[in-house]
Design a binder for these strands. Structure first.
Lengths: 103, 103
DNA sequence: GCAATACATGAGCAATCCTTCATATGATGG
DNA sequence: CCATCATATGAAGGATTGCTCATGTATTGC
């Protein structure tokens, strides 16, 4: 029985996950997070998702504002990474749930 | 690395979870699902969530259409229940993730 | 300094969503 | 049957969202 605040936080989190572009970014950052190269630059994310530079930047901004990712500038490049392992595992759990349903 | 289909299914699922009213319904149905009384009628859900009859019915319709809940009529009442344990556990996982972040 | 590269940001439009109001359907009791 | 209760559904308006286009800012190489 989550509190009202927790439910509000949950729905905000789910709203961030519900956009295909953002989800795509999160999925990419999740797998980076698990490798020896835990961050990706905007141009990488652009290539991976196939979305426009502006769109990627906008959605990364949303994720950053929500605290799900952080950014670090290195020269002209800006590298993003997931802030929390909890988010990465949540994505895994959700994927498992979807696969269970599909089966 | 989820497939494109899986990602689409994921984002649809998250979209359903992102609305506070629907999330509230799901949370209520989740705890019912775990008790000896796994279903709740619309009027119960109305009382629990505090939302209007029409709104509750609309959102239950959305959840039903997505296959997350099923309904059963008993006289004038209609009882709803979660279809999948996977969804219940996903809600638990998400709540844990949010609590981890808040801490 | 200037051009070019990488990224961020703001405005704006189309589309979707959320909720309400009104009304319809289904079931029961008298 | 008729009134009533429980739920479903449709239309409609306002708000929110998603994306694009245009432009701004930061950094580097020359």
């Amino acid at each position: 029985m989550p509190s009202a605040n927790e439910q509000a936080a949950l729905s905000r989190l789910f709203a961030l996950f519900s956009n295909p572009t953002r989800l795509n970014l999160l999925v990419a950052l999740r797998s980076a997070f698990r490798s020896e190269q835990p961050e990706l630059c905007v141009c990488d994310l652009e290539a991976i998702t196939g979305a426009s530079q502006s769109l990627v930047s906008h959605q990364l901004g949303a994720l950053r504002e929500a605290g799900l990712v952080t950014s670090r500038r290195a020269g002209r490049l800006v590298y993003y990474r997931m802030t929390a392992a909890a988010i990465a595992t949540l994505l895994d759990d959700a994927l498992l749930a979807v696969r269970r349903e599909a089966a």
